[in-house]
Design a protein around this nucleic acid. Structure first.
Length: 334
DNA sequence: GGTAGACCTGGACGC
DNA sequence: GCGTCCAGGTCTACC
């Protein structure tokens, strides 16, 4: 009989809001189902891939909001999630699945973490936004970040879809082992990753347990609170295909929010929304100064400002259709 | 330390 | 249908 797990979540956790909080929820193998307000994807587990569907009990729509265009998330905050798999999971696999789901949904950030963020930046208290969706593994987060560099959003969508189709098992995201064994020419020709081919293969090799390179990715060290942010940032920048933007983004994916990931979207935001003037370099400096008051959580403040802008243009993110949004969504098109 | 140019893909546009 | 232009971050060579 297929396994169905009950996942306990923090008191303020809302599936629709906390999944649809970062662009990766639109990238394969993730699939957000607007009609049912649920998330499905294939997870890699010890005995093979398993598809999971995550749901949370719904909350009744308050009478005063009925029929009105208003920020309303359809789930009951803090209600346990149901994780329904398409096959039976062994005990060790169930534990593994819980770890991966917990990472993806940032269940380690409890209500007190959200409260601390809202105390620092009260603009997000009403919506409750605080968590940023990520991947079940650091490896997937790093590869997704590289596929988002120097391309428009539709290309990122395509690259991730093709990586899953060509190298993934049963629709899963490729494992580091599989990608490390791939020929760069295959990645280029079949996954359309372009010049990133060699870099992706090298990166994948650094995630293998017995990486020979001194740059081997030690996830325990990267996530250890005792490791200074500066050291993590410096290490990430030393990896192939990772520059200042990608390193800043991976920092937040590691739960380190003290850095910004500044790119052309940031420039657009600075000019159009924050009315900043000057050269690009000058605006980058102004952006850094602008978010400084939000200290160790500045990435969240920055990101939710961007997200607000996207939602103002396209409606609430939990109602975004993956295929529709995948065709556009880039600075030059706003 | 700062900067110019190459690296690729895919969409927009003109013919 | 074809050719050209452009957006996008990283890397290398060079000053």
């Amino acid at each position: 009989m297929p396994t169905c797990l009950t996942i306990r979540v923090p008191d303020d956790f809302v599936l629709s809001r906390d999944v649809c909080s970062y662009g990766y929820f639109l990238l394969a193998p993730n699939h957000w189902h607007v009609k049912t307000q649920s998330l499905s994807r294939v997870l890699h587990l010890a005995e093979g891939p398993a598809k999971v569907m995550l749901t949370q009990p719904s909350a009744p729509r308050p009478a005063h909001l009925r029929g009105a265009q208003h920020l309303f998330f359809p789930h009951k905050p803090g209600a346990p999630l149901a994780a329904a798999f398409d096959r039976a999971l062994s005990r060790p696999e169930q534990a593994e699945a819980r770890v991966q789901i917990g990472r993806m949904l940032r269940l380690d950030e409890d209500a007190s973490h959200s409260a601390a963020f809202h105390a620092l930046d009260p603009r997000w208290k009403a919506s409750g936004r605080s968590r940023l969706f990520r991947s079940p593994t650091l490896f997937e987060d790093v590869i997704k970040t590289v596929t988002s560099c120097n391309v428009t959003w539709p290309s990122t969508v395509n690259m991730n879809r093709r990586l899953c189709e060509v190298l993934g098992k049963a629709g899963a995201f490729p494992t580091a082992r599989r990608m490390a064994r791939a020929r760069p020419a295959t990645l280029r020709a079949r996954c359309r990753v372009g010049y990133r081919d060699q870099r992706l293969v090298e990166l994948a090799g650094l995630f293998l347990p017995r990486g020979r390179s001194p740059a081997h990715v030690d996830e325990a060290w990267l996530t250890d609170p005792a490791t200074p942010d500066d050291d993590v940032f410096k290490f990430l920048k030393s990896l192939p295909g990772i520059g200042p933007y990608a390193a800043g983004n991976i920092m937040q994916l590691l739960g380190r929010y003290s850095r910004l990931a500044l790119d052309t979207e940031s420039l657009r935001h600075g000019k159009a929304i924050l009315a900043m003037k000057g050269s690009d370099a000058a605006i980058m400096k102004k952006l850094a100064a602008h978010y400084e008051p939000f200290g160790p959580l500045k990435f969240k403040s920055y990101w939710f400002e961007l997200w607000d802008f996207y939602e103002a243009k396209r409606g609430y993110s939990h109602n975004w259709d993956r295929d529709e949004v995948g065709k556009s969504f880039t600075a030059s098109q706003f």
